[in-house]
């Protein structure tokens, strides 16, 4: 997630300085993200418009690139433009707007090359982990608390928390391997 933002932002900064090669790489990357973004949001009957919307958005990115403020996240800026183009498309075609008022994160999915992995039910995986580790993993990896925070709230030492998480993740890995073998 962060690496995508960092990478795109670096390319954008180079582009604003006039580096055409970075710019071409940036536009190629952005076009891929945009395609997925629009395809997800267009009704079955309008999927064919995705390419037009991608090109429209690329041209807007080009024409409006002066409005990118370099101390802001690039993906948020790009998302705002893509969303504007999508809503404009709905308006022009007099379609009911059913786009959720989504966040910028939706534009750059964590890993859309492996959609199956994304759909894997995290909760059910966690069920296979011993309860003590499950709790620790849930707090640190899903709720995003720090090791120190979890240590204070559970009364464990930091190293005990780390060991617990490590054991749990090992258990999950074992389970995933088993699944992969089992399902062929």
């Amino acid at each position: 997630m962060h690496s995508v933002e960092t990478r795109l932002k670096e390319l954008m900064l180079a582009s604003l300085a006039g580096d055409a090669r970075s710019y071409a790489v940036l536009l190629n990357d952005v076009a891929k993200h945009l395609r997925v973004y629009f395809l997800r949001r267009l009704a079955e009957s309008h999927k064919a418009d995705a390419d037009d919307l991608v090109q429209d958005t690329l041209m807007a990115l080009h024409a409006k690139r002066a409005t990118y403020e370099i101390d802001r996240p690039f993906t948020a800026w790009l998302h705002a433009i893509a969303r504007y183009k999508l809503i404009d498309h709905f308006r022009r075609n007099k379609l009911r707007i059913t786009v959720p008022l989504d966040d910028a994160e939706d534009l750059i999915p964590v890993d859309y090359s492996d959609v199956a992995a994304n759909r894997m039910d995290v909760e059910s995986l966690l069920q296979s982990v011993p309860e003590k580790s499950r709790e620790l993993i849930y707090r640190t990896k899903i709720e995003g608390q720090s090791i120190a925070e979890v240590a204070t709230s559970t009364g464990l030492s930091e190293s005990a928390v780390k060991v617990g998480i490590h054991r749990g993740i090992k258990a999950i890995a074992a389970k995933l391997k088993g699944r992969a073998h089992g399902n062929g």
């Binding site: 006039g18 580096d19 055409a20 710019y23 071409a24 536009l27 190629n28 041209m59 080009h62």
Partner: peptide
């Protein structure tokens, strides 16, 4: 389009 925009970059 991307090639054209990149050529046009200032």
């Amino acid at each position: 389009l991307i090639a054209r925009l990149a050529r046009d970059l200032k």
